[in-house]
Design a protein around this nucleic acid. Structure first.
Length: 766
DNA sequence: ATAGAGTGTCATGCG
DNA sequence: GGCGCATGACACTCT
């Protein structure tokens, strides 16, 4: 199915382009958006109504939007989701009604290019509407939500210097808001009404561009709404397009209908279009690939594919099926082959071809003005604003840029050939460079840490599900008492025999786990318990620690029947002379079960307890260990104790305290390890999220490139000189200016501009 | 028989 | 200096 989809998609595109080249209008959008589910779904994937839903992936893929498979609202849910995705797409790189004003520029004798429109020139207006789309409301909205994400985009290099005040960050950052990249954000902030309102805003604002075209001294056709220059200048070399041609071109360049996704960064256009024949040594400039070098390797794609392959391999190791969770794409080549044109993002552009003089541009074109040269062209500066702030934006960062190579792929068959990618000079150089670096770093992480984003997503699911660690089920207190309280009965029996009190560590630990843990506590819940019951020390958050043989002498003192219950983890040491004197002779073992039990408990006594008994210490070891110093001294003073007894008592106290300290220390150690483990998982989850966002971003970028490529072909292929002949791609090239206008200029001129643009980044890097 | 976990103990350092 | 605590190291037991 996927291959068929890919085949049809590419085939249709090729066929459409071919038809457009021979003058037959093909409205792909009709097929994509019409109510023809089979074809539409072959290309775009099945709709929910026809989809055999993979419920297992729903929770993962649908923005974390969980829904029960058996929910009767499932259909509504899918419908809502589809609508929601369309609404979301409204803020993606959209130029709903792009007006294309193609002007022909004739060469003046002095070598300057003069357009009939000094300010905007002959424009492929793609700007006016977008500015409205990201109007004040959007600006405010984005200022609220974009801040956090701007850093991410900056990491991706998708930043541009502020060109104008009206230009919001969303305009600059490829028109993509944070919602596109941050699923969780989307999940939380998807406000359908708000988005719909934004969409309505768009639709409301687009018609305004007609007035703007008038303001630019353009005549607007009453029927078509397209703009053309009020006065068509003539010239020697000028080649005029008839109005009919303009109309045809206008129609043909709107194959995708409205709401087209369009790169906010026009400079990316150049990258998107493969070049045909280019002089070497030009890259990373604003001119078209046709005019620029082919040696600029499009490394990003390759590296990204490498990364994807790495992650795929890792994902396959765990669960191949879950790879779609992250990439929503077949494992083969998720980026290069599996993108498809969104049906809901067509391009509807009003194209007006204007006569203009070819050749030297006038000084009005910032491209040739020294200002442009001096303007910062670092990384982001190569991004062209889709929206010129005003007519004076010719001084904007980007100046005018050649679109020749953009709209003329190397193969005139119009296939979106990925192999052409590496040949493209990269006007997104800064962006992609940074993105590449980011990519590499991520790859490094993936390689070094063996990071598996699928695992991370699974972890995320776990975290989301219970917001707790599922690392060790034994952490639950229940497991503690169940597993360790097996011999708790012995405690009672041992307490009954007060003189030879001993018990297993199990009994002790179980008792304490039920009564409230002792020792080190990292859980606030246990603090109260500790204070109430006099427990001291460290209580680990996880009951795993409770496996340790706790002993709480303070508690024991509070619980007389447990008073002599201590740690049972005693060495099976050979009875010393002192201890052996206290041990019952072997013959006494035959006396009865009680005695046997007592003997067993004796063996369970700690070494110090045996010593204490042997030395006839008149108080319990627990008191020795846990009494405060003052009380302890007071207790000692009450008895007439020999030096040996006092020494033993002090040793017992020292060892007892040290034992508890050691337990607390180990608990702390474990707790630290577990916290670190949790931190690592959090970081892995974040990393997986960032990778998903990056995948989304790159996918959108590729879609943009493909669309722009098609658009270039459409526009250039329909340009005709006064004799009705098409322009030769080897002689002419489309160039876009900073204000969104598009010029048809000779390639020689474009070459010069390309060299200039090329020098800038190099100088800057020095 | 062995490895590893758990525990107790000692030595040491610190406050 | 004594005391309590923390911790590394070691030994021992148990599974």
């Amino acid at each position: 199915m996927l291959s068929l989809k890919k085949y049809l998609t590419e085939g249709l595109l090729q066929f459409t382009i071919l038809l457009s080249l021979i003058g037959v209008r093909v409205d792909v959008d009709t097929y994509l958006t019409s109510q023809l589910p089979p074809l539409r779904e072959i290309i775009l994937g099945p709709s929910s109504a026809y989809t055999q839903t993979q419920f297992h992936n729903l929770r993962n893929t649908l923005d974390g939007y969980g829904i029960h498979p058996k929910s009767i609202d499932l259909d509504n849910y899918f419908t809502a989701r589809r609508l929601l995705s369309q609404v979301r797409a409204l803020d993606r790189f959209q130029v709903p009604t792009t007006e294309v004003n193609a002007w022909l520029v004739h060469r003046d004798p002095e070598g300057s290019v003069s357009g009939s429109q000094p300010s905007s020139g002959l424009a492929l207006e793609s700007s006016s509407g977008l500015q409205d789309v990201t109007g004040p409301d959007n600006g405010v909205r984005e200022s609220e939500t974009e801040q956090g994400f701007s850093e991410d985009l900056e990491d991706l290099g998708a930043v541009a210097p502020p060109v104008s005040g009206d230009l919001t960050k969303e305009d600059i950052d490829l028109g993509a808001g944070r919602e596109i990249f941050d699923y969780s954000h989307r999940q939380k902030e998807q406000d359908v009404d708000k988005e719909l309102q934004g969409g309505a805003e768009q639709e409301d604002t687009w018609p305004g561009e007609g007035a703007e075209a008038l303001a630019r001294n353009l005549l607007v056709d009453g029927e078509t709404g397209e703009s053309f220059p009020a006065q068509v200048p003539g010239g020697e070399d000028q080649t005029a397009l008839s109005l009919e041609e303009c109309l045809r071109l206008l129609e043909a360049t709107c194959p995708f209908g409205e709401n087209a996704e369009f790169p906010a960064d026009i400079s990316s256009i150049t990258e998107a279009v493969p070049s045909e024949s280019e002089p070497p040594g030009l890259q990373n400039n604003l001119l078209s690939p046709l005019l620029t070098g082919t040696e600029s390797p499009f490394d990003l794609e390759q590296q990204w594919q490498d990364l994807m392959s790495i992650m795929e391999m890792q994902a396959m190791e765990v669960n191949t099926s879950t790879s779609e969770i992250l990439y929503d794409a077949p494992p083969g080549d998720p980026l290069s082959t599996n993108y498809s044109l969104a049906p809901n993002t067509p391009i509807n552009q009003n194209v007006s071809l204007h006569q203009a003089s070819l050749g030297g541009c006038s000084q009005d074109f910032s491209l040739f003005s020294p200002e442009v040269e001096s303007l910062p062209v670092a990384g982001s500066s190569t991004l062209l604003p889709l929206v010129p702030s005003n007519s004076t934006s010719l001084n904007s960062t980007f100046g005018s840029t050649n679109l020749a190579g953009l709209f003329f792929p190397p193969q005139l068959n119009g296939t979106a050939n990925d192999t052409a990618g590496p040949e493209l000079p990269d006007p997104l150089g800064g962006l992609l460079d940074e993105a590449m670096l980011d990519e590499i770093s991520l790859m490094d992480l993936a390689i070094e840490e063996g990071f598996n984003p699928v695992q991370a997503s699974q972890l995320e699911e776990e975290f989301d599900s219970d917001s707790g660690l599922s690392l060790d089920s034994s952490h639950s207190p229940s497991s503690l008492s169940s597993s360790e309280g097996s011999s708790s009965s012995s405690s009672s029996s041992s307490s009954s025999s007060s003189s030879s009190s001993s018990s297993t560590s199990s009994s002790a630990s179980s008792s304490f786990s039920e009564e409230g843990a002792v020792g080190y506590s990292s859980d606030s819940e246990t603090l109260d318990l500790e204070e109430a019951e006099g427990a001291v020390g460290y209580q680990p958050e996880y009951s795993k620690f409770c496996r340790m043989s706790y002993q709480d002498p303070a508690q024991l003192s509070c619980l007389p029947y447990l008073e002599h219950v201590g740690h049972n983890h005693t060495y099976n040491m050979a009875p010393s002379a002192l201890d052996s004197a206290d041990l019952p002779p072997p013959s006494t073992l035959k006396k009865g079960s009680k005695e046997k039990q007592a003997d067993f408990l004796d063996k369970q006594m700690s070494r110090d307890e045996h010593r204490a008994r042997a030395m006839k210490i008149p108080f319990t070891n627990d008191k020795i260990i846990n009494l405060p110093v003052e009380e302890f001294n007071e207790l000692l003073s009450k008895y007439q104790l020999s030096e040996a007894q006092l020494s033993l008592i002090r040793d017992i106290r020292r060892r007892g305290k040290n034992k508890m300290a050691a337990q607390n220390c180990r608990k702390r150690k474990l707790d630290t390890i577990l916290n670190l483990e949790r931190d690592v998982e959090d970081l892995q989850r974040d990393k997986a999220r960032l990778l998903r966002e990056k995948v989304e971003f790159l996918r959108s970028l590729r879609q943009m490139k493909q669309k722009v490529q098609s658009l270039y072909q459409e526009v250039f292929g329909r340009l005709r000189d006064e004799n009705g002949r098409p322009y030769s791609p080897s002689q002419y090239a489309l160039q876009y200016a900073g204000d969104g206008s598009v010029l048809l200029i000779p390639r020689t001129l474009a070459d010069q501009q390309a060299r200039r643009q090329e020098r800038k980044p190099k100088d800057r890097r020095k």
